[in-house]
Lab assay of single mutants.
Amino acid sequence: ELSWTAEAEKMLGKVPFFVRKKVRKNTDNYAREIGEPVVTADVFRKAKEHLG
């Protein structure tokens, strides 16, 4: 699991709890794919757009 900024964690907190774990995993995987060592708010937004 990658490191997350406080802002990205806050955004994740707005995701319904029953899918939060999956969203975190998918976002981590997306960040790795694009070469990001940390999940930022920008990476979170891009993952959301990319993953739907």
Rank of each mutant, 00 (worst) to 15 (best):
S3A: 12
L51S: 09
A6W: 09
Y30Q: 01
G35M: 06
K10W: 10
P37V: 14
K48E: 10
K10V: 12
K25A: 12
A47I: 05
K48T: 13
K46F: 05
E33K: 10
D28V: 08
G35K: 06
E1M: 11
V23P: 00
A31E: 00
G52M: 14
V43Q: 02
K21Q: 15
A6I: 12
V23Q: 05
K22R: 13
P16D: 06
E9R: 09
V38M: 11
E36Y: 09
P16A: 06
V38G: 03
M11N: 03
K21I: 10
I34N: 12
K21T: 13
K22M: 14
T27R: 02
D28E: 15
T40V: 01
L2A: 05
G35L: 05
V19N: 13
N29F: 09
V38S: 06
L2N: 05
V43S: 02
Y30I: 03
T5R: 02
T40P: 00
V39G: 00
V43M: 04
E9D: 05
F18Y: 12
D28K: 02
K46C: 05
N29T: 11
K25F: 13
A31K: 01
E36S: 12
H50P: 04
T5V: 03
V19D: 15
L12S: 01
F18Q: 12
F17S: 10
F18A: 13
V43G: 02
I34A: 09
K10C: 06
F18P: 14
G35N: 08
V43I: 10
V15Q: 05
K14F: 09
N26H: 14
N26K: 13
K21D: 15
L12F: 04
V38T: 08
A6F: 10
L2T: 07
R45Y: 07
H50A: 14
F17T: 08
R20Q: 07
G52L: 15
L2V: 09
E7D: 08
E9W: 12
E49I: 12
G13D: 14
V15H: 07
E33A: 13
T5A: 04
K48N: 15
G35T: 03
E36H: 08
E33R: 10
T5F: 01
F18K: 15
K21S: 13
A47E: 02
N29S: 12
R24G: 02
L12A: 02
E49H: 11
R24E: 03
F18N: 14
N26W: 15
A31F: 01
T40C: 03
A8D: 00
N26Q: 15
K22I: 13
F18V: 11
P37C: 11
F44R: 01
K25T: 12
L51N: 10
A6L: 12
Y30F: 09
P16S: 06
K25N: 12
S3E: 14
G13K: 15
T27N: 02
E7H: 05
E9N: 06
L51C: 08
R24Q: 06
K46D: 07
G13Q: 14
G35C: 06
D42Q: 08
V15A: 06
L2S: 04
S3C: 09
V23F: 08
V43F: 05
R24A: 05
D42V: 07
E1K: 10
K10R: 14
E49Y: 10
H50K: 12
R45H: 07
K22A: 13
G52T: 14
V38L: 08
R32N: 07
E9H: 06
T40F: 01
Y30V: 03
R24K: 12
G52A: 15
A41L: 09
R24C: 03
V39Q: 00
E49F: 10
F44N: 00
I34R: 10
E49L: 13
K22F: 12
V39E: 00
Y30H: 03
R32I: 08
K10H: 11
G35W: 04
K10F: 11
N29K: 13
K48G: 09
K46M: 09
N26F: 14
G52N: 14
V23Y: 08
A6Q: 10
F17P: 10
G52P: 08
G13N: 14
L51A: 10
E49M: 10
K14L: 12
L12K: 01
K25I: 14
A31N: 00
M11T: 02
N26M: 15
T5G: 03
A41C: 06
R32L: 08
A41S: 07
G35H: 06
A47V: 05
K14Q: 12
K14P: 03
K10L: 13
L2K: 05
A8V: 02
N26R: 12
F44K: 01
R20D: 02
A47C: 06
K21A: 15
A6V: 11
A41H: 04
P37Q: 11
G13I: 11
R20P: 00
E36F: 08
A8N: 00
T40G: 03
D28R: 03
V43T: 05
V39H: 00
G52Y: 09
V39W: 00
S3F: 14
G13R: 14
V15Y: 15
W4G: 00
L12C: 03
V38A: 06
F44T: 01
H50M: 10
K21W: 14
A8Q: 01
F17Q: 09
D28S: 07
A31R: 01
V43N: 01
K22E: 14
R20E: 02
F44D: 01
I34G: 04
E9F: 09
K25C: 06
H50R: 08
A47H: 06
K21V: 11
H50T: 08
K21E: 15
G13T: 11
T5E: 04
L12D: 01
K46Q: 12
